[in-house]
Amino acid sequence: MKDLPWSESPDQASHLREHVDVNQDPDAAALVAALARTRAELAAAVPPAPPVELVARWHAALAQLRPVTASQDPVEPRRGEPTIASSASSGARPGSASQSGDPKRMPNQTWRA
């Protein structure tokens, strides 16, 4: 897909603010406001709960899984690399609403999925 003109800006609203005098262009101002409102609604939307069937099926599958322990980990941590055991208590990264006030951010990372 060809990049849009605002691709060098964080989003098209920022692009408009940078390249259009929204004070002199009511349509540009309206577009900026509309996009901001859209993003605010997206951020505020409460995610739907997973279907009951998925939850039930997952719990059934979980019951069939054999326990996993750290000693079964086939991959040794690299030297100096934090392990889950050492980082867990420090809450190394946010990732859930229960962990910190900013549940959504993550650093540049390398996954081992």
Binding site: V68, V75, I84, R93, G95, S96, P107
Partner: peptide
């Protein structure tokens, strides 16, 4: 789970 390296959040992983 043993392969998680804590370089990201658990959720991101």
């Amino acid at each position: 789970a043993g392969g998680f390296r804590a370089e990201s959040s658990v959720y991101s992983w």
